[in-house]
Write a protein that binds this DNA or RNA. Structure first.
Length: 340
DNA sequence: TTTCTAACCTAATCAGAAA
DNA sequence: TTTCTGATTAGGTTAGAAA
């Protein structure tokens, strides 16, 4: 399975949303509306979203793709021009159905809200679905709006790197010289995410986020680095091993089942999350990236798990182990010197 | 394996909010 | 009024699901 980003900038597997499969009745409803109006306004899209149980942004995508697919058939309406620009042509559905507020109300992102995605943007201009979902939860802004924000930011700052790094998913085959910082996700701003598991404690193919099996040669080296308000913890070796295609980084496969409207606030916070504040108190005194001396040896218990089943990773175990790494990290960290 | 199409991207542009 | 930036579009591309 390839993990590279392509020359066109399209991220590959694991970074996308799970593909929506519309059933026949959903297609029928969409088709009916499409025939009525191939450019549904926000109110219509939201209504459709409710009606068929699909997120509004997916509805938006369906109409966009469907317009493209219908174009060669020449159904009597022009797709050659942007709807917002082609008003000079007579387009009856616009006259008949376009409400006063055809667009989605402009999302106002406050300075404090934008701080989080700005940090993420610094690390990665092409956040994958997991990252976007996390950011959405952090900011309270819809995931689709988060995606929009990143798109606009890339347009606004074209001078910066255009290489999609797609967080850690690029792994060992990623662009050379990619720094650890570029791929980090600010976990600290997530409260208690790590213990939010499906009851089975394992993931199936149908779930949105698949944790990567951790091969024995992958050694996690938690790294604490300085951020505006963060303790960043991530496996480093997945970034460094040149020939370890299976050493997918955990960060991009956050083992959370992120479903719309889900509340993570009542989940049990792991050790490192509980100690986040302690770290934050000291991070302002520091200006350097910290790294642990050595936590590179895989846990013996985990090796045992590996032998049992690489396909069904016990996530609660991984996260327990992860917390232990963080505990060790904090134990070694001398606040006076700001280093371990 | 092939085909279809959802999801993702860029670029251009519009339009509302803030300065 | 101008500037900034979120929203929308077409078109190119990738990759998952079904045939």
């Amino acid at each position: 399975m390839g993990l590279n980003s392509t020359a066109s900038g399209i991220p590959q597997k694991e970074t996308r949303k799970v593909r929506t499969v519309y059933n026949q009745s959903q297609k029928d409803i969409l088709q009916k509306w499409f025939e009525h109006n191939p450019y549904p306004d926000i109110a219509t899209r939201e209504q459709l979203a409710k009606e068929i149980g699909i997120p509004e942004y997916n509805i938006h995508t369906w109409f966009k793709n469907h317009r493209r697919n219908q174009k060669p058939l020449g159904s009597g309406w022009s797709l050659g021009k942007d709807q917002t620009q082609g008003q000079e042509e007579h387009q009856p559905w616009v006259q008949e159905t376009l409400p006063k507020e055809a667009r989605q109300a402009q999302t106002s992102i406050t300075r404090s809200e934008s701080n989080i995605p700005v940090q993420a943007l610094d690390r990665n201009q092409f956040p994958d679905i997991a990252t976007r979902s996390i950011l959405a939860k952090q900011t309270g802004i819809q995931e689709s709006r988060t995606q929009m924000w990143f798109q606009n930011q890339r347009s606004l700052h074209p001078g910066q790197s255009r290489k999609p790094v797609n967080s850690l998913v690029d792994g060992p085959n990623k662009t050379p010289n990619l720094t650890v910082q570029q791929n980090q996700i600010d976990l600290s701003t997530l409260s208690g995410w790590s213990h939010h598991f499906p009851s089975s404690n394992s993931f199936s193919k149908n779930q949105t986020f698949l944790p990567a099996p951790l091969p024995s040669h992958v050694s996690f080296v938690p790294c604490v680095s300085q951020g505006p308000s963060v303790v960043l913890v991530q496996p480093m070796q997945a970034m460094q091993e040149e020939n370890s295609p299976s050493s997918l980084a955990l960060m991009n496969y956050l083992p959370i089942s992120l479903t719309p409207g889900e509340d993570l606030s009542n989940t049990h916070a792991p050790f490192w999350s509980q100690n986040q504040e302690k770290c934050q108190n000291h991070k302002e005194q520091m200006g350097t990236v910290l790294q642990l001396k050595d936590y590179s040896q895989p846990h013996l218990e985990y090796r045992k798990h590996q032998l049992q089943d690489l396909g069904q990773v016990d996530l609660s175990y991984i996260m327990q182990w992860w917390d232990e790494c963080c505990q060790a990290l904090l134990a070694e960290w001398d606040p006076q010197e700001g280093t371990s």
